[in-house]
């Protein structure tokens, strides 16, 4: 692993490929989608248009910054990995 690689941090939730960890031979069931690297981020004040109170989110705090990723935005194969930056770190939120 390159020493220059930034800590690529990961929130984890959801279903993996249909195989065990020992034999990692996932079936490719969808084509490779473009990476999401610059996701739209909104403030609490703007949130009402995007999410309702009882919807599930993945939440993370890094340093002083908190961010929530609504599961209902991640459930399509094109959305399952969100590359983001938070609190100075490069992270990936995954579903």
């Amino acid at each position: 692993m390159k020493s220059g690689l930034l800590p690529f941090l990961l929130l984890v939730a959801g279903i993996p490929f249909p195989s065990s960890a020992d034999e990692f031979n996932p079936r490719q069931v969808v084509k490779a989608f473009p990476a999401i690297t610059d996701p739209r981020i909104v403030t609490v004040g703007e949130a009402g248009r995007f999410v309702e109170g009882n919807e599930l989110v993945l939440g993370v705090v890094i340093g002083e910054q908190a961010r929530a990723y609504p599961i209902n935005m991640l459930t399509n194969p094109t959305r399952e990995i969100i590359n983001d930056r938070l609190g100075g770190s490069a992270i990936a939120a995954t579903w």
């Binding site: 403030t43 609490v44 599930l56 939440g59 929530a68 609504p70 935005m73």
Partner: peptide, 28 residues
């Protein structure tokens, strides 16, 4: 490095993190 993320409701998260930001994509 696996981060200590949590799964919760938006209400609960917002209550404990009043200055949180939010991913603002369309719903799937």
């Amino acid at each position: 490095k696996i981060l200590p993320g949590v799964m919760t409701t938006w209400s609960e998260w917002r209550l404990r993190h009043p200055r949180t930001t939010l991913l603002g994509m369309s719903r799937t």
